[in-house]
């Protein structure tokens, strides 16, 4: 019997359900969905790093760099979402490739904080540079899609469809990658770098590849977020608190599955939205409390609930 990959099937079903739901969802739900997919993509990159035993407190660097790439191209007259998001992904990946030469030598807290240091450099540059919109940022024009220029609600519907297709492809791609030798090297590097070196492979190279990948998907998330919100500014795109949100989502999700990051991102968006709606004075308190509860009761994240359910069934 041929081996059937349950994760790919699950992702495909989720993709088809969301594809159909796109035409019925209320605008605000679609907006939350878009943000969840964008943030989930960044968390997916963090998950890949996390599986290698690394955590970054500065991935707003690539998220913000992607968003600013998209907005600058938009200001330069490019409006096609394919160009804007592709450029955002590529530029962030390139930045990660360059910075990766330094960061691949560091581990643990040094790796985490060096990422934060780089992200704060970007933040500082953007805030102090008039040409980059300074603290006010820029608005992003309405995107077109291979010549198709939607208007009204169709803009969001098309953007959601666009995001869904690419997020699906990236996520399935990451899942397949995780089954490869290079994907499994995450475990090897996390568990024992010395053995990896003495088997004849560079642990630093493994980390660099994963870092570039996480930069690429964070750039993708940033590009999508820029188009979804229609506005880019340093505080919501490149500040260290944004990096904190990604770490929050990754902890919330757990590292059990590539699908987990999107569920985590959705839960995060819902908690934040409703906390802000019903308790505007203490939404951070509710967000922090939720994280505390997750760490205490679900230390392996929301995804571990599925494992528990399976065990209970068995």
């Amino acid at each position: 019997m041929r081996y059937v990959d349950k994760t790919v099937i699950g992702l495909t079903i989720a993709f088809l359900v969301l594809l159909a739901a796109n035409f019925f969802l209320a605008e605000w739900m679609r907006f939350i969905g878009l943000q969840s997919l964008a943030r989930g993509a960044v968390a997916l990159g963090l998950l890949v790093l996390w599986r290698s035993g690394l955590i970054s407190f500065g991935h707003a660097l690539y998220f913000g760099f992607g968003a600013y790439t998209a907005v600058m191209l938009s200001l330069a007259g490019f409006s096609d979402a394919f160009i804007l998001v592709f450029a955002a992904t590529l530029m962030s990946g390139l930045l990660a490739f360059v910075i990766g030469f330094l960061l691949r030598r560091y581990r643990a807290i040094f790796f985490a904080l060096l990422n934060m240091a780089f992200s704060m450099i970007l933040y500082g540059v953007v805030v102090k540079t008039e040409a980059l919109g300074s603290t006010d940022g820029f608005g992003v024009g309405t995107p077109t899609f291979l010549g198709y220029a939607p208007d009204g609600e169709a803009v969001q519907t098309t953007l959601f469809l666009f995001t869904l297709v690419f997020t699906y492809l990236i996520t399935v791609g990451v899942h397949i990658y995780m089954q490869t030798t290079l994907g499994y090297m995450s475990m090897a590097v996390r568990e024992n770098e010395i053995r990896v070196e003495y088997l004849g492979y560079s642990a630093e190279k493994v980390i660099h590849v994963k870092y570039v990948f996480s930069g690429l998907v964070a750039g993708f998330g940033g590009g999508i977020m820029a188009l979804a919100i229609g506005h880019v500014d340093p505080d919501s795109m490149a500040n260290w608190t944004v990096s904190g949100e990604f770490v929050f989502i990754t902890i919330l999700s757990g590292t059990g599955s590539v699908a987990a990051t999107y569920i985590g991102a959705l839960v995060f968006e819902l908690i934040r939205t409703y906390a802000f709606e019903y308790a505007p004075q203490m939404w951070q308190f509710i967000l922090g409390g939720s994280l505390l509860a997750i760490i205490m009761f679900l230390p392996d994240g929301i995804w571990s609930l599925i494992g528990r359910l399976r065990k209970a069934k068995a």
Partner: peptide, 26 residues
Amino acid sequence: SETVFENLLMAYAIVEDTGLAMLSPI
């Protein structure tokens, strides 16, 4: 944290897969 089989599977994969073959299933 891996089994004996997985340890050796990883070792074989590192030794046998070079270049783009690193992207083939382990």
